[in-house]
Simulated scan of single mutants.
Amino acid sequence: MSNYLKTHSKILWVVIFSVFFMLMLRITLKYIPFDSNIAFLNIKQTEVQSVSLYLTFFYIHVYSSIFTLFTGFTQFNETILKNNKRLHKAIGKLYFYTVIFLSAPSGLFIGIYANGGFYSKISFVLLAILWFWFTIQGLLKIKKNNYNQHKYFMMRSFALAFSAITLRLWKVIIVYLFEPAPMDVYQIIAWLGWIPNLLIVEYYIYKAKR
């Protein structure tokens, strides 16, 4: 019975991720071709006009983050892990370099200009820093052949990458249930987007270690 539940929970997780990944892909495709006055950028015209590098970092973050979601998700596929370690390593390198050189630095930059004021900015900046650090630690652990710690740090890293999806999900839920002011929404989802993800992973790690 446990194997039955385990198999079906994996299938459910794949289905859920696939649905939200496709929604994220649709959001990303809105920014192709380049347009400085579309979707989210409609409310960021102050930054677009006054911060010379804002658009550059914004597009780097948007385009690279979709790859981190896909590559990060495949890293936990047991079939690939057991039967094709070279593929796992190649995808892992792609995830690592994308996060370290593109997604996390650009996330840090645009986080400084996040909506919602000081508390939102602190959240997004902290998110970018932790994402960078967890990913670096994942690489360092595997270089020392510490497979468990490598897995744990990469799980933490992907939990933060997954915030691209959970942030938007929380936004829909909060707006639907409470209809708060727009800036209040950003202050709330800035933290809800990633902290619950990380807490879930930490609980899993705690249970695994026991």
Score class of each variant (00 low, 15 high):
1 M>V: 08
5 L>P: 04
5 L>D: 10
6 K>I: 03
7 T>G: 09
9 S>K: 11
11 I>P: 01
14 V>T: 11
16 I>R: 07
26 R>N: 11
28 T>R: 10
32 I>Y: 10
32 I>D: 03
33 P>A: 09
34 F>K: 10
38 I>T: 12
38 I>R: 11
41 L>V: 01
47 E>V: 06
48 V>R: 10
49 Q>W: 11
50 S>I: 04
52 S>T: 10
53 L>K: 01
54 Y>H: 02
54 Y>Q: 06
56 T>W: 08
57 F>T: 01
58 F>Y: 06
61 H>G: 00
62 V>A: 02
62 V>H: 00
64 S>W: 12
66 I>K: 07
71 T>C: 12
71 T>H: 09
83 N>V: 05
83 N>Q: 07
85 K>F: 07
89 K>G: 03
89 K>P: 05
90 A>M: 07
90 A>C: 05
91 I>Q: 13
91 I>D: 08
96 F>Q: 07
99 V>N: 04
100 I>M: 14
103 S>G: 03
106 S>H: 00
108 L>G: 05
110 I>N: 12
111 G>H: 03
111 G>K: 03
112 I>G: 07
116 G>S: 05
117 G>V: 04
117 G>A: 12
123 S>V: 00
130 L>W: 00
132 F>D: 08
133 W>Q: 12
139 L>H: 12
140 L>P: 01
140 L>E: 11
141 K>P: 02
142 I>L: 06
145 N>K: 14
147 Y>F: 14
149 Q>W: 10
151 K>N: 11
152 Y>E: 07
153 F>Q: 08
153 F>H: 14
154 M>R: 04
159 A>C: 09
161 A>Q: 08
162 F>W: 02
162 F>A: 14
163 S>A: 15
166 T>P: 14
169 L>V: 13
169 L>Q: 12
169 L>H: 05
170 W>T: 05
171 K>T: 02
172 V>T: 04
173 I>V: 15
174 I>G: 08
177 L>H: 09
177 L>A: 14
179 E>S: 12
181 A>S: 03
182 P>Y: 09
183 M>E: 15
183 M>S: 14
195 I>K: 05
204 Y>W: 15
207 K>I: 13
